[in-house]
Computed example of a mutant assay.
Amino acid sequence: MDALDLLLNRRSVGKLCAPAPEGKVLENIIRAGLRAPDHGGLTPWRFVISQGKGLDKLGKILSDAAIAENSDPAVVDKMRHAPFRAPMVITVIAKVTPHPKVPALEQYLSAGCAAQAMQMAALAQGFQGFWRSGNLMFHPLVHQAFGLSGEDEIVGFLYLGMPEIEPMKVPQRHLSDFVEYL
């Protein structure tokens, strides 16, 4: 697939099935994330891969946080099963290093760029992915489970697998609604 075509037609598919990326394909996905813009060469990213029993662990982390928030039992159950929307979930973490010229915001943006690059690398290799977030990724129990400290943050959960459904058409947007010139 042509790179520009890939960028202009990217759509998330919310229902993914096995197989998950593995071997050289997964390695390419991670390497794409490592090519994100990185002011100061701080490498402000960490990727935690969950699959198989790891999806159970991730579901427990999320449901425990939902329980701690006194969430409705249906929400707790939804969080427990959320990781199973795909055969693999990569938790993308901004690992923030205090730096006089590179604020935490730049490091969060870099981790976000890593997530986008990883998603695009998956698509380029015939897989599909979607990026999820949610208020529980900021929960102290979730941070503790992932060993976050200081200004570290989870920037999202990247779900990867094969599409179970066709992606929706890309919405047409008018550039003039988003672009202006000084």
Rank of each mutant, 00 (worst) to 15 (best):
Q128M: 14
L26W: 13
E164H: 02
L4S: 12
M137I: 15
K53Q: 13
V170W: 04
K24H: 13
A74G: 11
R173I: 10
Q116H: 10
L34Q: 14
F157S: 00
S133Y: 09
K57T: 12
V102L: 12
C113L: 03
P19A: 00
L7Q: 08
Y159I: 04
F47H: 05
A115T: 09
F138S: 14
G23V: 07
P98W: 05
L42T: 01
A117L: 10
R80H: 12
L26E: 04
G33T: 03
G54E: 12
G40V: 07
D152Q: 04
S110V: 00
F178I: 04
R11K: 13
S50W: 08
R10M: 04
A117E: 09
K60I: 08
D77H: 12
M1Y: 14
L175S: 11
G23S: 06
D72F: 10
K24E: 15
M79S: 04
L34N: 03
K24C: 08
E27D: 13
R31N: 06
I29V: 05
L105V: 11
S50T: 12
W45R: 03
P73G: 13
Y159T: 01
A20T: 00
A74I: 09
P103Y: 10
H139D: 03
A121H: 07
F138A: 14
V102Y: 08
H143R: 15
P21F: 08
G40L: 13
I90C: 07
L42D: 05
S110E: 07
Q172I: 04
P140H: 00
A66Y: 03
R80D: 08
L141R: 03
P98T: 06
C17N: 15
V76G: 00
V179Q: 09
D5P: 04
R46N: 02
P100H: 06
L4W: 11
L26D: 04
D64P: 02
A66L: 06
V76T: 11
P163N: 05
N9Q: 15
E27T: 06
D77N: 14
V92A: 07
L160I: 06
K24N: 11
L16T: 01
R10C: 05
D5M: 13
G112I: 11
P37C: 00
S133G: 13
A121Y: 02
V25T: 15
M118P: 01
V92I: 13
S176R: 06
A68V: 06
M79K: 12
S133M: 13
G126Q: 01
P83S: 04
S63D: 03
Q125E: 13
F130E: 04
R35S: 14
T91Q: 07
L16E: 01
V75R: 14
P100L: 01
R46K: 11
K24S: 15
G40F: 13
L4V: 14
I154L: 15
A114E: 07
Q51P: 00
G41A: 08
K95Y: 09
Q172C: 04
P103W: 13
Q125C: 02
Y181R: 07
D77G: 13
R46Q: 05
L123E: 15
L8Y: 11
A18S: 12
P73A: 09
I67F: 10
F130Y: 05
